[in-house]
Simulated assay, not measured.
Amino acid sequence: MDAGDWIAVAALVVALAAGYFAAISARAARRSANEAARLSGIEAERRRDEREERHERLAPSHPGSIVAVLEESAVGGPKNLFGSITVPRDYRVQAEGWVRDSYTLLSLPLLLHANRPYRFHIEHWPPDREEPQTQEVRFHFWPPVDVDDTDPWTCSCGRPTGENADSFGHWELRVPITYEPPMTPWIDYA
């Protein structure tokens, strides 16, 4: 073998070694990319869980039920059924009274301030009625926005913001109505 043959053999050995190390490097790069993608997925899931946990912490607490109170009309008309709600922080709100498959918007201010009871009319009560027709109140809550008379705050979960109260609620609560008829005084005729 002459010098040219040795150079060709050496070049072949170098090329084979380079190919071998390139293949090892490519496998390592694929493993590294797969691991980075897996870690990125874990991190995205952790951030999603944190957003959901924060969303739940910011949610209004469920009152269990709306305890309805029957009151005489101030103008001598039918009696009226009222309820009330208190929220732990400031929220925008819209409420609906549901009777089977239909609803009526209930009169509450758009912004409820924290720890203040808000009284609202549920329904009129004709003389022959014995129990409420309204079965539940559905509340739609949103964080307050810049135009509200409060310090706005946000929930970064991506649900509706409340700038449009016609959208779905950021949080929605279905709260049953409970009503205890007034006690009839017991008369002893003995």
Rank of each mutant, 00 (worst) to 15 (best):
Ala29Gly: 07
Glu50Ile: 12
His113Ile: 03
Asp5Glu: 14
Pro143Ile: 04
Val69Glu: 04
Cys157Asn: 08
Leu16Ala: 15
Arg51Cys: 10
Ile187Gln: 12
Val13Gln: 09
His113Tyr: 07
Gly76Gln: 01
Arg47Met: 10
Thr134Gln: 02
Arg51Thr: 08
Met1Ser: 15
Asp128Asn: 14
His140Gly: 01
Ser84Ile: 02
Asp128Tyr: 08
Thr150Phe: 05
Leu111Thr: 06
Gly19Trp: 14
Gly64Asp: 09
Arg31Cys: 10
Asn164Cys: 10
Phe21Trp: 13
Gly169Arg: 03
Pro127Met: 09
Leu173Cys: 05
His140Ala: 08
Gly77Asp: 13
Pro88Ser: 08
Ala3Leu: 13
Thr86Leu: 03
Ala28Ser: 13
Ile42Ser: 09
Pro144Ala: 04
Val69Arg: 02
Leu16Glu: 10
Asp166Ala: 14
Ser167Glu: 15
Arg100His: 13
Cys155Gly: 04
Arg89Leu: 03
Gly158Lys: 13
Gly162Ala: 02
Arg27His: 10
Gly41His: 07
Ser167Asp: 15
Ser156Ala: 14
Trp171Val: 02
Trp186Met: 14
Ala44Met: 11
Ala29Arg: 14
Pro152Phe: 10
Arg89Met: 04
Asn80Thr: 01
Gln133Gly: 09
Ser40Leu: 10
Trp98Leu: 08
Ser167Gln: 14
Thr161Trp: 07
Ala68Ser: 11
Tyr189Trp: 11
Thr134Val: 15
Arg89Gly: 06
Thr150Arg: 07
Val99Leu: 07
Cys157Met: 07
Ser73Phe: 00
Asn34Lys: 08
Tyr179Met: 04
Glu172Lys: 08
Arg100Thr: 15
Tyr118Val: 13
Arg57Gly: 05
Asn34Phe: 03
Arg48Val: 00
His62Met: 02
Ala190Cys: 02
Leu12Thr: 14
Glu130Ala: 13
Arg48Gln: 13
Trp125Lys: 00
Ala11Tyr: 07
Arg48Tyr: 11
Glu35Cys: 01
Ala3Asn: 11
Ser107Arg: 09
Arg89Ser: 05
Ile85His: 00
Arg31Lys: 14
Asp188Lys: 04
Ser102Lys: 08
Ile42Arg: 11
Arg138Phe: 06
Leu173Glu: 11
Asp146Asn: 11
Glu45Pro: 01
Ser156Leu: 14
Leu70His: 03
Ala3Gln: 14
His140Ser: 12
Val69Lys: 00
Cys155Ser: 13
Thr86Asn: 05
Gly158Arg: 12
Phe120Trp: 02
Ala33Phe: 09
Ile42Asn: 06
Ala68His: 09
Pro109Thr: 13
Val14His: 09
Pro143Lys: 03
Gln94Glu: 12
Trp153Thr: 05
Val14Pro: 00
Phe21Ile: 02
Thr86Ser: 15
Ala23His: 13
Asp148Ser: 02
Ala3Gly: 05
Leu16His: 06
Leu111Tyr: 01
Gly77Phe: 00
Asp128Ala: 13
Ser107Tyr: 03
Ala114Cys: 05
Asp188Thr: 04
Arg54Val: 12
